[in-house]
Amino acid sequence: MTITREEELEHLREIGRIVANTLQAMARAIEPGMTTGELDDIGRGLLETAGAKSAPEAVYGFPGATCISVNEEVAHGVPGDRSIHEGDLVNIDVSASKKGYFADTGATFRVGRVAPGLDRLLRDGRRAMQIGIAQVGADRPLAGIGRAIEAFASPRGYTLIRNLASHGVGQALHEYPEEIPTWSVRGERRRINRGLVLTVEPFLSRGALWADTGDDGWTLHGMPPAPAVQYEHTVVATDRGAIVVTLPG
């Protein structure tokens, strides 16, 4: 989607706040012993109260209101009977629509204490997203997002999962540009037009290069197996850089 009117931006900000508030409330609710299904129920209730519809459920028939991925699960984890334990990494991805506008956000959280290397992975995953967002602006190269993220990640020994990319969003959950690499790509000539709405969501790992679909047909696992984190915001490109619309408030 390309924003052309202030009214469109306000609608995006509204749904952006809803998914951001839902994400943060779910994160605060995480505690050892609860199931991912119970955590998803919290997210569902918050979205419904705000008058929003779960995007993965409505668009793709996903069996949950939100995607909750634990430890070896990289993305699209199906909420259910899996228990959350001390020391787990829990990724929550919340996308929803309201009044025909979509926003998408996500983050990875630790449950209690984790190994120092995982703490660094969490911090660096968020930093990688922020570095990518800093490359967003009107008439800037789309490839600049991936180049900057990889320039940060590679010297620190991280890998970027290559079949999970950022994407356009706004009037649909996934729209043009359908795939925005968060790693360096040769031959990418597209530029970011003013008002473009997109996500920035690197999947930073300590060794995984690919994400394979599990037996449930939804959950993605890193290959080769390795810890991974994801952080995501929905942003709008302007002449002065990116407006982040998925902020709580």
Rank of each mutant, 00 (worst) to 15 (best):
Glu150Ile: 01
Glu150Lys: 06
Glu150Gln: 02
Ala151Met: 01
Ala151Gly: 06
Phe152Cys: 03
Phe152Tyr: 11
Phe152Met: 03
Phe152Arg: 00
Ser154Pro: 00
Ser154Ala: 13
Gly157Gln: 05
Gly157Thr: 03
Thr159Ile: 04
Thr159Leu: 11
Ile161His: 01
Asn163His: 05
Asn163Ile: 03
Leu164Tyr: 07
Leu164Cys: 10
Leu164Val: 13
Ser166Asp: 03
His167Phe: 10
His167Val: 04
Gly168Ala: 05
Gly168Ser: 12
Gly168Ile: 07
Gly168Thr: 05
Gly168Asn: 05
Val169Met: 04
Val169Asp: 05
Gly170Met: 06
Gly170Arg: 00
Gln171Met: 10
Ala172Arg: 08
Leu173Thr: 04
Leu173Ile: 11
His174Val: 15
His174Ala: 15
His174Gln: 09
His174Leu: 14
Glu175Asp: 10
Glu175Gln: 13
Glu175Gly: 09
Glu175Lys: 00
Glu175Val: 06
Tyr176Lys: 00
Tyr176Glu: 07
Pro177His: 01
Pro177Tyr: 02
Glu178Met: 11
Glu178Thr: 05
Glu179Leu: 13
Glu179Ser: 15
Ile180Asp: 00
Ile180Pro: 01
Ile180Glu: 00
Ile180Arg: 00
Pro181Ala: 14
Pro181Leu: 09
Pro181Met: 06
Pro181Phe: 04
Thr182Trp: 02
Trp183Leu: 02
Ser184Val: 05
Ser184Phe: 11
Val185Cys: 11
Val185Met: 09
Arg186Ile: 11
Arg186Thr: 14
Gly187Met: 07
Gly187Asn: 08
Glu188Tyr: 08
Glu188Gln: 13
Glu188Arg: 01
Arg189Ile: 14
Arg189Thr: 14
Arg189Leu: 13
Arg189Glu: 15
Arg190Glu: 14
Arg191Met: 13
Arg191Pro: 01
Arg191Gln: 13
Ile192Ser: 14
Asn193Leu: 14
Asn193Lys: 14
Asn193Met: 12
Gly195Trp: 08
Leu196His: 12
Val197Arg: 01
Val197Thr: 09
Leu198Ser: 09
Leu198Gly: 04
Thr199Trp: 10
Thr199Arg: 03
Thr199Ala: 12
Thr199Glu: 06
Glu201Gly: 15
Glu201Trp: 09
Glu201Phe: 08
Glu201Asp: 15
Glu201Ser: 15
Pro202Met: 05
Pro202His: 05
Pro202Thr: 08
Pro202Lys: 03
Phe203Pro: 03
Phe203Asn: 09
Phe203Asp: 07
Leu204Gln: 04
Leu204Val: 12
Ser205Ile: 03
Ser205Gln: 08
Arg206Pro: 00
Gly207Tyr: 02
Gly207Ser: 06
Gly207Leu: 04
Gly207Ala: 07
Ala208Glu: 12
Ala208Asp: 06
Leu209Val: 12
Leu209Met: 11
Trp210Asp: 08
Ala211Asn: 13
Ala211Trp: 07
Ala211His: 13
